[in-house]
């Protein structure tokens, strides 16, 4: 079982991140992007921003959920392979923030998908975002150790 262990370990050591903008004001989005770029450089921790949810382990969601994109969010979440961790970045994703009284806003992504880490701030600072992602990586590690993961050595080719 050496290879299986190795794969599990490497999956939790280098989680890939997918970002979905769920109706945010762009403030948190550009802070997520700032985490990827040289000054905050998340790739130091082996985190790569990917566009495809099927490649990703961590989902960062920014913004309030509205009536139109709740299905898209659910879809992105369902497409991600198990185990997965969801980070709600910014207060809009946590609770709906200042927009929670608007008619088209559900208020908080935890009404649609389960959330593991909440990062407060309007917008959340890149440092806070890195903290949140580190915590998400810890939770991912824990989920890997708790659960029998369907990774067979054969499927790796």
């Amino acid at each position: 079982m050496g290879l299986k262990e190795f794969v599990k370990k490497s999956f939790s050591k280098s989680p890939w991140v997918v970002h979905y903008d769920c109706g945010s004001c762009n403030g948190c989005d550009i802070e997520v992007l700032a985490c990827m770029t040289p000054i905050y450089d998340m790739e130091r921790f082996g985190m790569v921003n990917v566009g495809n949810p099927k490649h990703a382990d961590i989902l960062i969601v920014t913004g309030t959920v509205n009536e139109k994109n709740k299905d898209v969010l659910k879809n992105v979440y369902d497409m991600m392979p198990d185990p997965k961790v969801v980070v709600a970045a910014g207060i809009c994703a946590c609770s709906g923030g200042i927009f929670r009284d608007c008619y088209n806003v559900l208020g908080g992504i935890d009404k649609v998908i389960p959330v593991d880490v909440y990062v407060p701030g309007c917008p959340a600072k890149p440092e806070a975002m890195i903290d949140g992602l580190y915590k998400a990586a810890q939770i991912l590690k824990e989920k890997y150790s708790r659960k029998e993961v369907i990774v067979s050595a054969k499927s790796l080719g």
């Binding site: 009536e67 139109k68 008619y103 088209n104």
Partner: peptide
């Protein structure tokens, strides 16, 4: 602008 389940003419 609105989705299927949004309020009508809000």
């Amino acid at each position: 602008m609105l989705g299927e389940s949004s309020p009508i003419s809000p």
